[in-house]
Design a binder for these strands. Structure first.
Length: 582
DNA sequence: CCCATAATGATCGGAAGT
DNA sequence: ACTTCCGATCATTATGGG
């Protein structure tokens, strides 16, 4: 990284990440302030807590002194008033409890041990529901085979295994029977090949998944029996924290500095999984249960930059001594776009942008807004204001002229998300929006990954699944963590080119291996890489959210959706990596 | 100009949260 | 009651190589 002098970027914007100087200067400052990470940053950022009013009473100090965060205290005071200290304390304790209490690890039924009895009853339940549930799609008998094939493939089996199983067991057999058949076949093969250890995780995977499916179905059945009465699904619902700050953010590191991970989840290797926070019900609990029962960390990137981005992260990284990337990115719309201030009407009270999506408003819609405004000299009537504001919020429009709003340019999105300027330049405009809309917010992810820096002073080997335009790689690079070997799996050739180009631009000294399809990354392939450079230190991945996000009007099918079910490949591959000894 | 492909524009609710 | 959202489909227009 020494010889990198690609400083040809016009540095009108100073968070361009190409600059190695940044990393070096940061390294210096961090080493001098290692004890209290983040403090320095706060001091430098001036008005970090801009969203809070100037509540500077003794009450605040009192509670902050007790160890609660300023934000929590402010919120509690807002709710109860300053006098009502008892209620404030109660609220604060509730907040803390909500954040720190892991769910009870009940549900023994999903765990390893099983008797043949329970197995049999499971089987009954399963086949029962499978054939009589209210799913309409089973009405078509000709698709029965394909449907079974598909669900087996979605469970992580190969199409070949699945079709053999169907052929042997007959079309009438239940999915459970089929998986049992495949498991047995795998077991036999594993013994043949003297590879019990390597093949075992695949069995575990399939087995665990099956159990989970059964669990879901049982629940569904129970739910149907209960009718529309209130259902006890406390064990099922994952509560989103409010404020959505996870285990802490740079401006307010949480008092919580440690968590107890389930033993099965401990690293190395470390893993870091990401997806949208607002999913259909049950999705996050399923993800969490697959990823070794680690509780997700839900974070809104509006605490890191000028745009919202509500995401859940499941990882087994330590959470103490995190530090943010320097320089801190702009935290408000006005900081991010100083020039728009003169056009920004006082009645548009936004300070943060909404989530950056994959497409932008049409020219016509901004034209409609201009037309709606041009008749008025001063403030338009409330009705017009509401129309305009609704549109602006919906499409993340900013003011760029008199009565003139416009969507963000691709390079502005790059900046907000923490990518190097022009990172995606060269591909089509549409593709840029799409790729960026699907990416990590660098500052957020880097904050979480920062703990790796002192653990791996010589760099890391990274397995990056669903890499997109390389958010994880860039975050690590900006942290000054050397990338020794990176295996990056990404289906889109356009995105792979972006990453490859970035890799060359930044004069990486490590090796980048890029693959195109997670589904073809099997144990052999992984073992090859792992013996080549001695295992992976970190497995990162944000699997497709197509079928999870609220923006999808047509196919919000949950984790079993066409694209989103690729999550199971993240789990499959992670479990393989964890089981292969090097 | 013809034809292919690529890029852009218009339009489409709803679940789950506060 | 009100807000938000890593989107998909189809029609239309732009682009480019012959």
């Amino acid at each position: 990284m020494d010889g990198n002098t690609s400083g040809e970027d016009g540095n009108d914007i100073d968070w361009s990440t190409e600059d190695e100087l940044e990393i070096e200067s940061f390294t210096l400052s961090s080493s001098s302030s290692l004890t209290v990470p983040g403090r320095e940053a706060i001091a430098g950022s001036g008005e970090a807590s801009s969203s809070q009013g100037p509540s500077n009473s003794k009450v605040v100090d009192h509670f902050v002194g007790m160890g609660f965060s300023g934000k929590m205290v402010a919120k509690a005071i807002q709710e109860h008033g300053e006098e009502n200290t008892d209620s404030i304390l109660e609220t604060l304790l509730t907040y803390s409890a909500l954040e720190s209490s892991p769910q009870e690890p009940q549900q023994v039924d999903c765990d390893d041990q099983f008797s043949s009895d329970s197995e049999a009853s499971f089987l009954d339940d399963f086949s029962d529901i499978d054939s009589y549930s209210d799913n309409e799609d089973i009405l078509n008998p000709t698709s029965e085979k394909n449907k079974k094939l598909l669900s087996l493939v979605n469970m992580g089996y190969t199409a070949e295994e699945a079709s053999i199983a169907i052929e042997r067991c007959g079309l009438d057999s239940t999915v459970v029977e089929l998986t049992d058949f495949i498991c047995a076949a795998q077991m036999a093969r594993a013994e043949d090949a003297h590879l019990p250890l390597e093949e075992k995780p695949r069995l575990n995977h399939a087995y665990k998944k099956r159990k989970l499916l059964q669990y879901e179905l049982l629940k569904k059945k129970k739910l149907m029996r209960l009718g529309n009465k209130t259902i006890d699904e406390d064990d099922e619902t994952v509560h989103l924290p409010n404020p959505m700050v996870g285990f802490g953010i740079p401006s307010e590191p949480c008092l919580k500095t440690h968590r107890n991970l389930p033993e099965a989840a401990l690293g190395p290797p470390y893993f870091y999984y990401e997806n949208v926070a607002l999913t259909p019900k049950g999705v996050w609990s399923t993800i969490s249960r697959f990823l070794y029962d680690v509780q997700p960390e839900f974070v809104d990137s509006k605490y890191f930059c000028a745009a919202a981005r509500k995401r859940g992260y499941v990882h087994n990284l330590p959470i103490e001594n995190r530090f943010p990337l320097i320089p801190l990115p702009p935290h408000t719309i006005h900081e991010a776009f100083p020039l728009i201030r003169k056009w920004w009407p006082s009645w548009d009270t936004r300070t943060k942008l909404n989530c950056l999506l994959t497409s932008i408003a049409s020219a016509k819609s901004t034209e409609r807004i201009r037309k709606a405004l041009e008749d008025y000299d001063g403030e338009p009537p409330l009705r017009v204001q509401k129309y305009v504001l609704d549109e602006c919020r919906k499409w993340n429009l900013v003011w760029v002229g008199r009565n003139k709003v416009a969507p963000l340019e691709p390079d502005e999105v790059e900046m907000l998300l923490g990518y190097p300027k022009n990172h995606t330049r060269g591909i089509s405009r549409t593709d840029r929006y799409k790729s960026l809309g699907n990416s990590f917010q660098i500052d957020t992810v880097a904050y979480h990954l920062s703990v790796l820096k002192e653990m791996f002073p010589n760099g890391i080997n990274l397995l990056s699944l669903f890499s997109g335009i390389g958010g994880a790689e860039i975050a690590l690079h900006r942290l000054g963590i050397r990338l020794k070997n990176v295996v990056s799996v990404e289906i889109s050739a356009v995105n792979r080119n972006v990453v490859r180009s970035w890799w060359e631009q930044t004069n990486q000294r490590g090796n980048l291996y890029d693959l195109d399809d997670v589904q073809q990354l099997n144990g052999d392939r992984l073992e090859h890489y792992m013996t080549l450079f001695g295992g992976f230190d970190l497995v990162v991945g944000g699997s497709p959210c197509n079928n999870l996000t609220g923006s999808n009007r047509l196919h919000r099918d949950g984790l079993e959706g066409k694209e989103s079910s690729l999550f199971y490949h993240y789990y499959r591959i992670l479990d393989l990596v964890r089981s292969i000894k090097t």
